[in-house]
Computed example of a mutant assay.
Amino acid sequence: MSEPLHAGAHLRVIPGRPSLSSPLLQVDGVSLEYRTDARVVRATHRVSFNVHGGDRFVLLGPSGCGKSTLLKAVAGFVPPAEGEIRLEGRRVAAPGPDRIVVFQEFDQLPPWQTVKQNVMFPLRRSRGMGAAEAAEVALHFLNKVGLAQFADAYPHTLSGGMKQRVAIARALAMRPKVLLMDEPFAALDALTRRRMQEELLELWHDAAFTLLFVTHSIEEALVVGNRILLLSPHPGRVRAELNSHQFSLASQGSADFQAAAQRIHQMLFDQPAETASARGRAHA
């Protein structure tokens, strides 16, 4: 049975219970491993969680807990050593256009293509759109991220934040069932990072997509997510799942926000993994 958090934190950790609707994405007892020259290393151990349509679901944990590897497994790049990942009830076995990844690196855009061509390329290749339709869709989503005026620019002329906005526009233009983001703002300066968080939330309110987001920042998790999965240090195990929909960028600096951040820090680092695993998973 879960223990309630301190009231001032305004977070809930409650036992798992059947949902009224079927999850869009199910990660069921997934262990992930990779090989080094010396041995096989376990990155995550029997991780389970559900993501529902429209969720902003955050994987939060310290460096080395396997959260990025878990995201790559959902994308279909890494096969589970144990357990199963299902999207709409079907096992994930390979990458697909229903799961698009936005990475941390700024140089994920082919430099020989213009901004508009970068957004058009997967639409034509994976969605089979003609040039005119792909151009119309590309400009629509570039306008959404405020970059329509840079449609004919090349990536090397853009700032890091602008490149990430192009990558987000390209991903959303594909209309994936789940948008996967792997610490996409980690390398940005503080002011640009905050602006990118604002823009992401504005896009979510406008388009209502489903988001699976990886971060090691507690504050970013509280701002971006409506649900947060806490992963223990290596190998990543589920510590708890929290409801955090009550927080926003406007909450930062408030006593409730700071109390919640402190409580999450304690849960991540101050309690044994076997105790935390008994806490269950939260549901809205």
Rank of each mutant, 00 (worst) to 15 (best):
S2G: 12
P4G: 09
H6G: 12
A9W: 05
V13A: 14
R17A: 15
P18E: 10
L24E: 09
V27N: 02
G29P: 03
Y34L: 08
R35P: 02
R35N: 13
T36W: 10
A38F: 14
R39Q: 15
V40L: 15
V41D: 09
A43V: 11
S48Q: 05
G53I: 11
G54K: 11
F57V: 09
G64A: 10
G64P: 08
L70I: 07
L70D: 03
L71F: 07
F77M: 13
P80K: 10
A81I: 06
G83F: 05
E84M: 08
E84P: 00
R86S: 07
R86N: 00
R90P: 02
R91P: 07
A93I: 13
I100P: 00
I100Q: 03
F103A: 10
F106D: 14
L109H: 05
P110T: 06
W112R: 06
Q113V: 03
Q117C: 00
F121V: 01
F121Q: 09
F121E: 12
P122R: 02
R125E: 15
S126K: 13
G128S: 04
G128L: 05
A132Q: 14
A132V: 13
A135F: 04
A135P: 01
E136P: 04
A138H: 02
L139W: 07
L139I: 10
H140M: 09
H140P: 01
L142W: 03
L142A: 05
N143E: 15
G146C: 07
D152S: 11
Y154W: 12
P155Y: 03
M162Q: 15
V166H: 01
A167K: 00
A169S: 07
L172D: 00
A173H: 02
A173Q: 05
P176M: 08
P176I: 07
V178H: 10
M181I: 10
M181E: 09
D182F: 06
A187I: 02
D189H: 12
L191P: 06
M196E: 05
E198M: 12
E199Y: 02
L200R: 04
L200Q: 06
L203T: 02
D206A: 14
D206Y: 05
A208S: 15
A208Q: 15
F209Y: 14
L211K: 08
L211D: 06
L211Q: 07
V214H: 09
H216A: 08
S217A: 13
I218W: 12
E219M: 09
E220F: 12
L222T: 10
V223W: 07
G225R: 02
N226P: 03
N226W: 03
L230I: 10
P235T: 09
P235M: 09
R237Y: 00
A240W: 02
L242E: 01
S244M: 01
S244C: 13
H245Y: 13
Q246T: 13
L249R: 14
L249T: 08
A250Y: 04
S251N: 07
S251W: 11
A255M: 10
D256I: 08
Q262I: 01
Q262Y: 11
Q262L: 13
R263P: 00
I264F: 08
H265I: 00
H265P: 03
Q266S: 13
F269C: 08
Q271K: 13
T275A: 14
S277W: 12
R279M: 14
R281Y: 01
H283S: 14
